[in-house]
Design a binder for these strands. Structure first.
Lengths: 339, 339
DNA sequence: TTGAAAGCGCTAACAC
DNA sequence: GTGTTAGCGCTTTCAA
């Protein structure tokens, strides 16, 4: 049989004191007679007593748990963010309840509800974008911190990247090199990060007089379809540049490209995109792109979380992180055929 | 101000019934007068009432939370396992509290303690191997499920792979191809999986009369050191084969190798190792190695968890998963120089 | 410095 | 079918 856990009562009885005294000993909220302390300590060791956080939370309304809703923890970006977050919050004795939304609005909804049931202290979410009203509603009672994907109409803490500007800049750079037939691998359709990036792309294209039919948007999201598209792109010569807006996909692309190179091909396709340090490292030629630095992102996020926990009613903080642009030479210059 | 959450009392008062009736309505534990049900439902919607799981758990001793202690969630293997686990447990309304031990015994210990405080229903752990006694102790009161790393002296549910046998087989295969100078990239030093694999390796080596000085063990664990070693290995010609015992490292190796190939080198080093499907996919030549299939692993694990939750005092189940051996040609045959 | 007792939000046994 | 009440394990006021 599984051993029953001792309760504060057991300790009190064994040590010959009241439960209040035991509680004070555990929480060090009052000075106690050393002799009494000793007896309590002995009792705790005797029973292997471990306080019940649940009961504590019920009184103190302080769970020390934060709910995290990410689209997918197997995405290296989110895994890295989670890991850093966990490390930074460890000393604060805060637990992380990790949920994968899988870009599914219904699942996200269900998880939000369950997290509220658990009375978590806060919810960090990279939203699917399908439940904006619900997020606002939740935020009325439990702090919601929106991460990575700007939700313009929600008044809650937010931390996201300069998606529009960075993508505009990157596209501009590609166009400046003379490319006109540009393929664009878009992110999850409801993600606002993906939307802003796409808007930045479109603006740059339009400003340079490139008509929409020269934009080749790749919509695939799942790995095999996406890779297949990349392979095809690498083998054709209509489209001269590819912009990949997620590190995960960029990674797939680099693998496909490498394999082709090893088979003796020499793909001419220029490419650029959003990458973490990892993609910059594994790319055999200096990569041109936007660097998503997880460490910076995660530590900013941690500050926002801790601040919100300390001041539940403090002013909402919406911050945009400036992702640095790194020039490499994966975007080669081609002939400028401006009419 | 953050809105206060409504309690069952608010609902009862508003609906003009007792809290017991509200509880019955929520849990559907008794038939209620439809008219009363309607009033309760209205009250719930009016207050946006969400039951407090904490208070529930305090009574029912059923948290519906499982603690997971993994060495590192940025390791693609563990991330994948987590994701599948999460999906399979979602319907059972079970939450996962994810902790990274970071191969640190002290951190693992602290997390175990904190999980006990939270009164989680069970703990799934890929142990560092530094706290065997503690794990046994914990298991007396809270089900511990040991995953991926066999702990021979602990009587608790375990699920691990045939590490000794598979590595013995793989090494034997390498030796059969004529290799005698074999480098071996070893896993985390306290991980029993790493230990068993190493033992299997050593046995095969010894049985083939290869003396220890021909085994070149690579101890580095962190990414940059490890990659550096791989680079050096790829450029020398003393050692003819490399056995990499973790998918993560194998991934690093493949990247280094690719980069070298692209620079025009033609590394002669034969290689093999433990890989997930991903590494088999990205390797440009058919890989010889042991396949760690996360789906199989995770679904077996789920069954063990669910079974344990249902029967806390049921018989302990220790199971070994048979990892399949895949023959490719990354281990090339070399001259047999048997004296 | 310590104890008695109320109560956190809920479930369930018992009574009507 | 519904209400009353005890109590889950703990914190915290109030008294002593």
């Amino acid at each position: 049989m599984k051993k029953e856990k001792a309760t504060i009562k057991d300790i009190a009885k064994y040590a010959g004191v009241s439960i209040a005294t035991v509680s004070r000993y555990i929480n060090k909220t009052r000075n106690l007679n050393p002799e009494v302390s000793g007896r309590i300590q002995a009792a705790i060791e005797h029973f292997n007593y471990i306080p019940n956080d649940n009961a504590r939370a019920l009184k103190s309304r302080n769970e020390r748990i934060i709910g995290i809703i990410f689209p997918d923890i197997t995405n290296a970006f989110f895994a890295k963010i989670f890991k850093i977050l966990e490390e930074l919050l460890f000393d604060h004795k805060i637990f992380l309840l990790l949920c994968n939304s899988n870009e599914d609005g219904e699942k996200e909804k269900e998880y939000l509800y369950r997290l509220l049931q658990k009375r978590v202290d806060a919810i960090v979410i990279a939203p699917t974008g399908l439940n904006p009203d619900l997020l606002s509603e939740v935020n009325k009672s439990t702090p919601v911190i929106i991460f990575d994907r700007n939700q313009p109409n929600i008044i809650a803490d937010q931390l996201y990247a300069n998606d529009f500007d960075s993508c505009y800049q990157l596209t501009q750079y590609i166009l400046d090199r003379g490319h006109r037939e540009v393929a664009y691998a878009i992110g999850a359709e409801n993600s606002t990060a993906a939307q802003f990036r796409y808007a930045g792309f479109q603006k740059a294209m339009a400003e340079n007089g490139v008509s929409p039919e020269h934009c080749h948007v790749l919509y695939s999201q799942d790995e095999s379809a996406c890779r297949q598209e990349f392979r095809e792109l690498l083998l054709q010569d209509q489209i001269s540049a590819l912009l990949i807006t997620s590190p995960k996909k960029l990674n797939w692309f680099l693998i496909e490209r490498n394999q082709l190179c090893l088979k003796g091909h020499n793909p001419m396709l220029a490419f650029a995109g959003y990458a973490t340090q990892n993609e910059f490292d594994i790319c055999d030629i200096p990569l041109t792109g936007i660097l998503q630095k997880e460490e910076v992102y995660a530590s900013r996020l941690t500050k926002i979380i801790l601040n919100r926990l300390e001041h539940p009613n403090g002013k909402v903080r919406i911050s945009e992180l400036n992702l640095p642009f790194r020039k490499g030479n994966s975007i080669s210059r081609i002939d400028l055929r401006k009419d």
